[in-house]
Nucleic acid binder design. Sequence first.
DNA 1: GTGAAAGCGCTAACAA
DNA 2: TTGTTAGCGCTTTCAC
Lengths: 349, 349
Amino acid sequence: MSGHIIKVTILDIARELNITAATVSRALNDHPGIRESTKKAVRETATRLNYKHNKIASSLRLGRSSIIGVIIPSAEINFFGSVVHGIEKVAAENNYTVLIYQSNELYEHEKKGVQTFLQSRVDGVLASISKETINLDHYSEIRNRGIPLVLFDRTDPRLGVASVEVDDFAGAFQATSHLIDEGCRRVAHIAGQQHVNIFNLRLKGYVEALNVHNIPLNDDLIVYGKVSIDSGRECMNQLLSRPVLPDAVFAVEDFTALGAIQAIKAAGLRIPEDIAIIGFANEAFGEYITPSLSTVNQQTVAMGEEAARLLFEGLRGGGQPRRLVLKPQVICRGSSRRMNSAPSPFPAL
Amino acid sequence: MSGHIIKVTILDIARELNITAATVSRALNDHPGIRESTKKAVRETATRLNYKHNKIASSLRLGRSSIIGVIIPSAEINFFGSVVHGIEKVAAENNYTVLIYQSNELYEHEKKGVQTFLQSRVDGVLASISKETINLDHYSEIRNRGIPLVLFDRTDPRLGVASVEVDDFAGAFQATSHLIDEGCRRVAHIAGQQHVNIFNLRLKGYVEALNVHNIPLNDDLIVYGKVSIDSGRECMNQLLSRPVLPDAVFAVEDFTALGAIQAIKAAGLRIPEDIAIIGFANEAFGEYITPSLSTVNQQTVAMGEEAARLLFEGLRGGGQPRRLVLKPQVICRGSSRRMNSAPSPFPAL
DNA sequence: GTGAAAGCGCTAACAA
DNA sequence: TTGTTAGCGCTTTCAC
């Protein structure tokens, strides 16, 4: 009702106790050379007056904000939600706050996010590069200003910064091998934009798995899409209209796989009996659809934690930027489990 | 390689042009009383020197941070991701940055988030109250400090602040009515924690729909759960073990519905022929599961936008806090569409 | 149209 | 153990 808000500063506390602001500041920061009784009195008075530390003033003085900025393509993708979770955990342990910026997979938004972070004087940046981004100058600027930068998942070696990613090559290799182990011989791949590093690596992992298993590579079994449900559906329809019908599909990620599943069902084919399918990323929905979607787990929370740890290493002046590679794991669910199913009407060649 | 980072301030620009910092500041802020040629020179020099506005210093001087804090239960729930999207859109239009804090549905985390925001001197707070939260003192503190607070989705009338929510009562009423319209007569409800306002309202909407359709309320058809997949499964199993078998279920939200679906399938019953089901929230997975999940759409992005607009009204010193109620819509999908399906083996009484 | 000067709230070097 | 003093970078009132 009073209508006016009194702002309490350390000076108010100081006056109250007949000491100086400097002593109050030291007491609140638990400075060793302050008498315990003084600290106690300060803390009590602070509570009584409803004092709240002014982080802005502190930041200006200290030259650091205790904020780390995180750029993610979209908060609506479960994967990034989990990663952020891991980041926040480690940030909290280090008394840091996390500022999140969504690029919505747009280069311009991403640049804007970086500018915002620089203006806000974040102490470090964690980022996952948008699919649209090709020019990396905005990220270079972060580095040039001496602000630690760590990339996760969608990384780029050109920047030469610390990074955490899953071994996409290995994940793709394992996923493809899994399909072959389940008895498939005409394994198709719905690939993503090849300028995105991880998508390119997944294609290479696919190719390598075929090689190792002595299965000749067939260009008719590879189709390039734009990594979305719709694109997955379209790509699958392309595959279905080609001379060689696949008996398995390794999709570049789960949403693409979902689109492919819809197309396969629409064509009246069975999963996994006629066509087995596996995705990548372990998105939440995969467990709930029918058949449940086999996929590759990327250890999302761990990724966030490790990325944040690398960042704090950088903040503490750690040496060389480190590149961490997490091991992915195939999660075998209904969409690719054929060994205990009815025999395929399209027996292996 | 140089190793040292030069921090450029407005003073550097001033020296460069033989003017004062005050003029530079005015020029950069497009102050009317500055000669156009001066502004141009300042802007050019700023770019040339790679000057970046120091928001921290600015905030300290101005007494506002141009940051709004958002507290959400979890970024891993699609719903909140969308709401945040809407918030960020409006925030960006107002040149504000968004700080996100996840409570993980924990009261202690939520309190911590509020403290962090107060310390960071955010100009306003948007929050969705965690399921665990009963005591609201931390939110009162925000208000007491004269910081605008707007609640969204999980609101509480006790706080008397602006809020945006969907009309949960109406949504539940419509969802239940929809099941009745599809021919169901033994409509069960898997309810949530009743101290959470929206869950209580959904129960009331369910009851009202039965009343309006002259269907007697049957306590055996209501079961109280904890709002999760596991809880949904358990609750559904309870319902299946009771004397009266339901022919439809209105679940308090989509994850609960998902658990219920799993239990129904495990019991060898068909959806929607034996038991129709509808959820609430329009989570992303609902579209992809089999059968696809009928649900209630909550206009998530609009909710975020409206919440942010209400906040900015508050920041501009708007009058009474307004309470906005968005109209929900039933989305009818496979899990409840019976009129064109095979006749139920459990005909209506 | 621009300059001079003060101050936002906090912290740290230096003094006592 | 505590006080004095200066300053982080910016904005704004008051002067000219």
